[in-house]
Structures are given as structure tokens and as C-alpha cells.
Design a protein around this nucleic acid. Structure first.
Lengths: 341, 341
DNA sequence: TTGTAGGCGTTATCAT
DNA sequence: ATGATAACGCCTACAA
């Protein structure tokens, strides 16, 4: 490995002169400057980012935490667009992305791992249990490490988070069903720990109340964003003999699972039962029938999360950042007029 | 930031003793050992990976290069599974993953960027032009940096590459069509620079020759793995009035584009024209009709690429590594018996 | 304009 | 069993 020391030696100058030259300082004699650049090229020199980071305390690296479970991170249909957007934004700002994948660490928390690696900021892309606001999350918030998350309410001077307007999202979904004459609307929620799940449930309840329908608690269930759970809950609900003519699920994957289950049970979608999802993942278009759903602006979520993070790093916005992006109801073929009404 | 120096001071020992303790050296007094661990915890100490890397010349980091264009890397339906597998394997081996996203570097080649970051090894996940064996690729091969690629024939002591058996893949696809009575089989290839494209074309030609059908060069065209190009070529081919009863495309995305175009032109798939793709991406299942295709073991490709890389890093396999994985023909609904035969 | 020297946090090689 | 001390490659006052 060739270092600035080698260049200095060959050029007959000190290493500080080389360093200044390579970093485009102005106070360097044009002649020596040129000489140094020439030798650097001859020797095929490239700077050592590790050494530089050690002294500058800046790695030009954004850390990314995915959940460790399957169907999270790269596998997750929702995060694919998000991470792609993050990549674009931080890349243009001069950062590389470090994905924390090392499994050989026992004591690792978001904070310790980030500090060990000296990343300049981090993005949290977590699902399910990972979203719980546990001690690790609290530690992170107090750490002072610039961080942004999708869908996780982080508070702290160097924290930000971005989410969709989940409340009005499901609300619009319910309104759509009501306008089609539905009143027996079941809800397959997410979990009991995430704000996302909570807000979607609230939107559902609000819409029903707005229209004086009132909600039957027995029509509300949890699918934990898993296909199998959603399928199971769908079956249970239908077998209970309630007057259900429509389903709203807190994710497209669960909605698709619900449609499949309904099909297996002999119900036709949307003739017998309407179904609405949430997210608008790619599969939604290809589903049979094409899924009516609430679209999240996934790419935008990632873009904003990255931009907020960059601001946090640059110290531009010391206040807590919370951005809510609008959703859009995408009507496809899985919803129709309620016949029983 | 608390360092081993601080611990040493508080414990009344030298920094070397602290270092030894923290790295679980045996030759350290149990008492002082315990004391140091206690203080380390009190002070909330965590090691600085950057400093360690500087002296050890090992970063425990695998670099990943995606193409910079859209529809590559995270966006690419093919690479999603591949990268997910890579992540799994290198993570279990104790590595984190650095995605090279920084766009603020002009002079960056695979080699210089990798050296700057001192990554221990790299994975190349490139598409289209990125796969060209240009000077950057040659530089990398001679660099001695452990690297593996998907679909790019790398040669060099520290290089490996993994690919599917593309030749026999398209060959099986053609055989399937021939068994259905087709003889007018058009081929929408990839590009003229990648080995992948070349092998798939060869497989197509071989199968035709094996069955004494002979191939009409005018039925062979290039779609460059782009939907729009594939659609255009499909239209051109059909309008030329040749006796085409089936298409084979070098990717599912192109095959789906071909199906759409055929539909627009008034042909029914598979009744009038059969279509086969390559890859078996998720969309293939949802396509209308569901696409018959040649499946690549995407997850396996990533697993093997990562494993080969780890061996290369550990110096276990100094010889050039080239792994070819079998493909499997997945027959769905886009192929049917040829009526005109 | 250039050189000297100290330090970033860690590991590693010697002694002791 | 423990402590000096010298790297690792780079940056940055400060001095000249």
C-alpha cells in the first residue's frame, strides 16, 4: 500500500505538503503541487479512508438497520422502494451505505454498533417486533446519533421519522366501502405495538363513527402482517356467521391472503365480499382480482427520511422532525357494490 | 468518546493490559481482568472499529457494487433475492455490508474504491453495460482483491463467479416448445456483450440444430433486457409476416412485455403464440397468462457467491472459482400446443 | 510556502 | 502477568 509518506519521500517534500496538496489546499506552490499530483498518479496512490476517518471522526457512511428476520429488509416488498430512495439521496450527498449484517455480535445495540462503526447517521427500517420502543430505542434517542426511521415515532434532538397518513388512509378506505353500500366491514389489523397499526385502526373506527355505523369489536382482529395469520383470521371471522361483506387489511400481503382464503371458502371477490389492502406493493396489481388498496408513497418516504437525516447530520435542523405523507386510495377490482344492502 | 486509555487510567493499568483483556487474551490476571471489564461497562465503553481496522488491515466489511442506473441493485427483481442471500451468508460469517453509493467521486473504479474503503472483499452485482469486461474489470482482476460476481466471467487468483446454466436453460425452453409442435420460434436476446446473453442464444441455436430445424437469423433479435425494446422487437418480428408461433425471451421482464405487445396486436397467448421467459421473477406468476419460464436459483446464486468470496478472503481457495448452477423449466400457462403444425 | 510534531484509538512486539 | 513503545495512514495546529 502506497501512502502519502511514499509520495513525500519521492517528491522530496514533507508529508504535510502532500496532504495539503491532495486535499486541494490553496497555499501550495503550483510547481510542487503539480509534481506531487504527478507522483501520486505514478505510484497509483489512493487515500485510505479508514485512516482519514480515524482523525476526522467522519466516515461518510450512513448505517442501515434492517430487521434480522426473514421478509424484512431486502426481502420486504415495502422496503425495497424505500431503501432504493435512501440510496439515491445519500449517494448524491457523498455517502456510502453500511448495512449492519454482522451476526457475530452479542452485545450489539443500534447505538453501540453505530458508534463502533462510527457511522455519521443511521436509518431504521424495521418491521414487527423491531419497531417496539424498547430500551434499545430509548438508548438510541438519547445517544445523539443522527437517525431517522420509517414508521417508528422517534423523539430526540437528532432524531426524525417519516410515515404515511395511516389514519386518513384507512379512513378513506372505509369511506369507499361505505359509499358502495357496505356496513359489515371487518378489519384485519397489524399488531398491538406499532403506531402504524394503531393509526390504521383508528382511521377505520373514525370512518365508521362518522357515518353513524358504529363498530363491532368482534369484527376487528390482528394479523401481525403475516399472510398465514391473516388467512386464519379471515376464516374465523367468516365462520362466525357475522354479516361481513367487506374486509380491510392493514397490509396488501394480508389482503391478498384474505382474498385467497375467501376464494377457498367459496366466496367470490368482489361479488360476495370486497377486500381492500394497504401499501400498494407490486403484487397488488397482479392479484386476482387486482387489489383495491391505499397507496403509500414508498419512494417518497425513503427520500424524505434520507433528506431529514442529512439535515440532522449537518446540524441544520436540531429540532425533532416528523413528516407525514399523504396516502392515496387506488381503486381496482377487489371492491364492488354491496349486494346485501 | 471513551477509549481504552480512559479505562487504563481508571483501572491503574497500562493500555496494553486493557487491550489484552478486552480481546480475551489468556495471559491476564483474573482479578485485573474482572476489574477492567467492570470499568469498561461502567464507562459504557465500546471499541472503535475504525482504529482497529487501521492497524489490523481488516475491516470485516464486504463491499457491494450495484449498477448506478435505475432498475439495478435494490430495484432489480432478479438481484433482490441474490443480495438477500449474500447478506445472510456474510452476516453469519461476521461481516457487515458496504454498499458503494457515493456519487461524489470522479476517479473511482471498483479497485480504487475498494482499496480506499479497505473492504475485505467485494461482490459485483451489475447489469447491462456494467458487465462489460472493460479496463475497470481488468484492473480489478489483477488487483488481488477478493471478489465474486454474478454472471460476469472474472478470472484471477482472487476472483470467482457464479452463474446459471444459461445454455441448457434456453435449450430446455426450446425443447419444450418443439415438443409442443412449434418450429417458428423467435428469440429476443439480451445484449451483445454479456456472457449470459451469449450462452442463452447458443442454447437456443443448439436445440434447434439438435432437432434439425435450423435457425433463421431473422428470428433472432436483441432486447437489451428492457421492456420497451422487447416490445418493439416483438412488434417488428410479428409484422414482418414470418411464421412465428412462439417467443423465447432472455428475461421475464422482456417476455411479459412481449406478451403485452402480442395482446395489443390481437394475438392470444398461448392460443396463437406461446411465450417463454427467463429468470422466474415474482411477476412471472402473476402475469396474464402465468409465464412459463426458466427458473434461476437466485437465492442459491447469492449464497454460493458469498461462500466463494469468504473462501477467497480466507485464502482457502487460491484457484479461480467458477460455479454453474442448474436451471429449471417452470411450465405455466403461456405455452401451448402449436395449432399451425 | 513548507516542515515539525502531536494525535486519532487500537493492536502488536518487545522487554521486564 | 504487565508495561513501554512503535506502528497504522492521515490530518492539523504551530512553527519556521
Amino acid at each position: 500500500m502506497v501512502s502519502i509518506k511514499d509520495i513525500a519521500q519521492k517528491a522530496g517534500v514533507s508529508i504535510s505538503t502532500v496532504s495539503r496538496t491532495l486535499n486541494n489546499y490553496t497555499d501550495v506552490n503550483p510547481k510542487t503541487k503539480e509534481k506531487i499530483f504527478r507522483i501520486a498518479k505514478e505510484l497509483n496512490y489512493y487515500p485510505n479512508a479508514v485512516a482519514r476517518s480515524l482523525v476526522q471522526k467522519k466516515t461518510n457512511t450512513i448505517g442501515v438497520f434492517f430487521g434480522n428476520k426473514i421478509n424484512s429488509g431486502f426481502d420486504h416488498p415495502f422496503f425495497q422502494d424505500v431503501i432504493s430512495a435512501v440510496r439515491e439521496v445519500v449517494g448524491n450527498a457523498g455517502y456510502d451505505m453500511l448495512i449492519f449484517t454482522n451476526q457475530k455480535r452479542e452485545r450489539g445495540t443500534y447505538t453501540t454498533l453505530s458508534r463502533e462503526r462510527s457511522v455519521d447517521g443511521i436509518v431504521l427500517l424495521l418491521t414487527g417486533e423491531g419497531k417496539k420502543r424498547d430500551e434499545h430505542m430509548l438508548e438510541l434517542q438519547e445517544s445523539g446519533i443522527p437517525c431517522t426511521a420509517i414508521d417508528i415515532p422517534l423523539s430526540g434532538v437528532k432524531c426524525g421519522y417519516v410515515e404515511s397518513d395511516n389514519f386518513n388512509g384507512t379512513r378513506a378506505a372505509v369511506e369507499h366501502l361505505i359509499s358502495l353500500g357496505h356496513t359489515g366491514i371487518a378489519f384485519i389489523g397489524g399488531d398491538e405495538i406499532s403506531k402504524t397499526s394503531y393509526d390504521r385502526l383508528r382511521g377505520y373506527q373514525q370512518a365508521l363513527m362518522d357515518h353513524k355505523i358504529g363498530f363491532d369489536p368482534s369484527l376487528i382482529t390482528l394479523g401481525y402482517f403475516e399472510k398465514s395469520r391473516a388467512a386464519e383470521e379471515t376464516r374465523k371471522l367468516m365462520e362466525r356467521g357475522k354479516q361481513i361483506t367487506a374486509f380491510i387489511a392493514a397490509s396488501d400481503e394480508m389482503a391478498i391472503a384474505a382474498m385467497q382464503t375467501l376464494n377457498e371458502m367459496g366466496y367470490r371477490v368482489p361479488e360476495d365480499v370486497s377486500v381492500i389492502g394497504f401499501d400498494d406493493i407490486r403484487e397488488a396489481v397482479y392479484a386476482q382480482p387486482a387489489l383495491t388498496t391505499v397507496r403509500q408513497e414508498k419512494y417518497k418516504l425513503g427520500t424524505v427520511a434520507a433528506e431529514v437525516l442529512l439535515n440532522l447530520i449537518d446540524g441544520k435542523d436540531p429540532i425533532c422532525q416528523h413528516v407525514v405523507l399523504p396516502c392515496e386510495l387506488i381503486v381496482r377490482k377487489s371492491t364492488a357494490i354491496c349486494k346485501k344492502s
